[in-house]
Nucleic acid binder design. Structure first.
Length: 264
DNA sequence: ATGTCGCGACCATCGCGA
């Protein structure tokens, strides 16, 4: 069972990259962020042709999230419960697993696209913190269900200095503010495992490189796309990966896919 | 600090968000 998250930075610009990657990586469930289009403009047929159920929560121009699943998925939320929001940043559903699966009958998956939050002295940062507070509250209620649960997506948070090539460059940025990092730690402290950090102590594990100033060529990256695993999922974690070679393709997204493989 | 994208308004560049 392979679960992935990928911020595509416009699904219409990235559909060819995505389908190529789906064919080679063969993930079971994928959370997508930054669709940047309405549901009716989402190129669903190309993805359905590869055997995926496609569930979208789109928005014109900005944001937008989706879940792709090779197993049946029932969407329970479009929009984060308890957080009034005009922006499409949250989608949650329950995947029905094949009979006799090691995880049990279901896997709950939430796809998130956190607000960027810059500049820090603006309402945008307060909005980011409010989103995190609401997600933490909601995650607490989900953990009480004691189901296997993954919250996957673009958190727009650099958790530690090891998650940036040049951490000093991010001082004062909303992605690396003490408050943003503390909020992320508080969410994790509910009992989630950061899948990448649980399986590797390699430095330079990044998921995003800015388009500007030759960031990719200099490996000036940050790790902001995360897979948070509930205890029942963490118990079955086998390996993780970051498909950084996607960033070297023609017309790439500024993010690359991050994935984890589970037993069963 | 900024050497870049993608979108949508509007028709050719520009402002916004990242």
């Amino acid at each position: 069972m392979l679960i992935a998250t990928f911020n595509v930075n416009s699904i219409r610009q990235r559909i060819e990259h995505l389908t190529r990657w789906l064919k080679s990586r063969e993930p079971d469930v994928v959370c997508l962020q930054e669709l940047k289009c309405l549901d009716e403009a989402f190129p669903r047929e190309e993805i359905e042709a590869l055997g995926y159920q496609v569930e979208t929560f789109g928005q014109k121009t900005f944001n937008g999230v989706a879940i792709l699943s090779r197993h049946g998925i029932a969407i329970e939320h479009r929009g984060l419960p308890g957080f009034l929001d005009e922006q499409a940043r949250y989608i949650e559903g329950v995947v029905s697993l094949p009979q006799g699966h090691a995880l049990g009958a279901v896997l709950r998956i939430a796809g998130v696209y956190f607000p960027n939050g810059n500049p820090v002295d603006s309402a945008k940062f307060e909005y980011k913190r409010g989103f995190m507070a609401a997600l933490t509250r909601h995650a607490e209620s989900l953990l009480a269900l004691e189901e296997p649960l993954i919250i996957a997506g673009d958190y727009n948070v650099i958790p530690t200095p090891d998650d940036a090539r040049f951490p000093e460059n991010w001082r004062g940025d909303a992605l690396f503010q003490p408050e943003s990092r503390a909020d992320f730690r508080k969410l994790c402290a509910l009992g989630f495992t950061d899948a990448i950090r649980a399986t590797s102590d390699n430095p330079r594990l990044y998921s995003f490189w800015d388009y500007q100033a030759g960031a990719w060529q200099r490996d000036n990256g940050i790790r902001i796309d995360h897979l948070l695993l509930s205890p029942l999922v963490a118990d079955r974690l086998l390996e993780t990966g970051i498909d950084r070679e996607m960033r070297a393709e023609e017309k790439p997204s500024d993010h690359v896919p991050v994935w984890c493989r589970l037993k069963g």
